[in-house]
Nucleic acid binder design. Structure first.
Lengths: 209, 209
DNA sequence: TGAGAATTGTTATTAATTTGACATTCTTTT
DNA sequence: AAAAGAATGTCAAATTAATAACAATTCTCA
């Protein structure tokens, strides 16, 4: 619509702006300068101004930024002005943990169902959301306009799920399995590779000695 | 010890090398060139060679890299040649999910205990690891040489835990709460901000229309 | 054993990202 | 209402990161 060539580096900073602006709002702080924001968020003031300017001139010279307006603009940019239907595949601890996070729902990510292949989970309800058999996966996601699937299966099961997703109308995958999924170009995949993250901890631990 | 000024960008790619090399090992592939590795891992061959050369000349001209040796070198670089004692704070679904991941343990991250403030979890055992009261936190981590704490509490509880950690010998925090912890310089903090990650999904979803 | 092919390590080039600088604009205060 | 101060938007410079190029080395196969 508007944004031309925004770099991924900028995009990945946006949620942090969103988070800190929400905090300011909750503290009833109405205005903030890039300099003040810099001191609490840790980016340079220059970077903040440049980041925001990728999307429009949200500030006012001599004044700064109106917190409420900026929060609302960033929410728009992040696509938080509408709802997304989501399902979770994998009803183990991680799947259940995600199902219990109310904050996702509050942001517009509506959990419609959970799926598993293990019979022991069938019929279980987490937070009013039912665990269904994978048999019903394709029909369910298409009938319920599901756009995002959180994959919380084992490494072994993840690619199978990805393959099945490709035959549906699902547009994005949030993948927690430690594998890089092979999917069609037009499906968005965002990975949370926990192990990768933990290994950087051990790297830095070793370095800090 | 050796590495001079390795950039964080390089460090964050190392776990991926580690992961793919393990796969090659499991398939009994003994040697690999940067070109072949490039085709499966998705980085350019040039980048792979440059990344690896930050730490030493592990390859051989005309031949490529010995998979087993390279895997072992990267394991060393990542600090995986020793064990780390860890504890989890927060015994909810996420804490339990992490406690159940055997892959962390296999890599040397030994879970010694879990902690919570909620009495309902006391005495519960996940995978042979007991949930203890937060009362015992400081004494336990110091007596058991715990180096890493996984924080799986709510947003509200996370900074309290971080404050208590600072009075112990713990060296690193793996933080899952949606907050940027304030800690002394010498404590390593690695964040897994799930919400930030999910918001980039909605951004890209919006953009892809 | 030697010529040709393969592949690294490394330097050079290009691209991307971050930081700095400042003119312009708006706010505030007197 | 005017002058001083504050802070943005934006251009330029500096830094960092990624890619390309290639000489040097090793492997492979006749």
């Amino acid at each position: 619509m508007k944004d031309k060539n925004i770099s991924v580096a900028v995009i990945r900073r946006l949620p942090k702006y969103h988070r800190y602006l929400k905090e300011l709002l909750d503290k009833d702080i109405r205005r903030i300068s890039s300099k003040e924001l810099s001191s609490i968020i840790g980016f340079t003031a220059s970077q903040i101004r440049q980041d925001l300017n990728n999307f429009g001139g949200f500030g006012q010279q001599g004044y700064g930024y109106n917190v409420e307006d900026l929060y609302s603009e960033i929410s728009k940019i992040l696509g938080l002005t509408r709802k997304y239907n989501v399902v979770i595949v994998g009803a183990g601890n991680l799947g259940q943990a995600l199902a219990n996070y109310t904050s996702f729902g509050r942001l517009g990510f509506d959990l419609k169902a959970m799926f598993d292949i293990n019979p022991k989970f069938m019929g279980l309800k987490i937070n009013d959301v039912e665990v269904l058999d994978m048999d019903k996966f394709e029909s369910f996601v298409n009938e319920n306009d599901v756009e995002i699937v959180y994959i919380c299966t084992s490494r072994a099961g993840a690619q199978d799920v990805a393959d099945r997703i490709q035959k549906t109308n699902v547009k994005a995958i949030w993948n927690f399995a430690p594998i890089d999924l092979k999917v069609k170009e037009d499906i968005i995949v965002e990975n949370v590779h926990l192990i990768d993250n933990l290994l950087t901890v051990s790297y830095f631990l070793k370095e800090n000695l």
